[in-house]
């Protein structure tokens, strides 16, 4: 691996967004393939995820490393797109908190954990209308979505989301996952979603298992 890529990895390990961004640009200038750079960056995040699972690192380490990784990833994905290629990953997941709900933290933790497990994550933020989920899923050809709701009333929006995906003919192509304090396994079944994650860890494991079962079938 080139020195620059090793420095990029070190920057992510040190949670240094600015340095990660600078080393990413430097790598591209040196003619390193963006896919190679993204693999190098993802490797560090995976290592961070493992250290987190072992209890060596804490959640704030994981989220900070994820932010540094994102700084690099955005540049590299753009470069891959310009080459007319697609990034290789475990899968593409679109995340968002449903319309009317501003709760962000659980989703942010899930995003960091998914990225640490090699997924490509597109976080639409909070108060995301169903149409925006649809648009992004079409744009990036997503494999899964995760819709978060923290309030008894806003979780109804998860039901609407499933309905909108049906109407758009996307339902069978996208794994639909719901989460947040008022959600339960029964709620997931009632609205016809695929997965319910009680915690961020639970969600990651379920999405991995679901994909395995899916590809096995």
């Amino acid at each position: 691996m080139s020195d620059t890529l090793e420095e990029l990895q070190e920057a992510i390990r040190n949670f240094d967004e600015e340095e990660a961004e600078a080393k990413t640009r430097q790598a591209l200038e040196e003619g390193i393939e963006p896919q190679e750079a993204i693999t190098a960056a993802t490797d560090v995040l995976r290592e961070t995820g493992q250290k987190f699972e072992n209890g060596e690192l804490f959640l704030f380490d994981l989220v900070s490393a994820g932010d540094a990784m994102n700084a690099s990833r955005e540049i590299l994905e753009e470069a891959i797109k310009q080459q007319g290629d697609e990034r290789e990953s475990e899968g593409k997941v679109v995340l968002g908190t449903v319309e009317g709900d501003i709760h962000n933290i659980g989703k942010k933790i899930l995003g960091a954990l998914l990225a640490a497990n090699g997924y490509e994550v597109f976080d639409l933020g909070v108060e995301v209308p169903a149409e925006e989920f649809v648009e992004k899923c079409k744009e990036v050809d997503a494999d899964a979505i995760g819709a978060s709701a923290l309030l008894t009333t806003t979780k109804e929006k998860q039901r609407e989301l499933v309905e909108v995906f049906e109407e758009e003919g996307l339902r069978d192509d996208v794994i639909m996952m719901v989460g947040g304090a008022p959600c339960t396994e029964e709620w997931k079944d009632e609205i016809g979603a695929d997965l319910y994650g009680q915690t961020a860890f639970d969600a990651v494991h379920k999405i991995q298992d679901f994909e395995k079962a899916d590809s096995g079938a």
Binding site: G55, F58, L59, F60, I105, G106, I109, T199, A200, F201
Partner: peptide, 8 residues
């Protein structure tokens, strides 16, 4: 406090 291992 957020439990930094579980996020709870």
């Amino acid at each position: 406090p957020m439990d930094m291992r579980l996020g709870s």
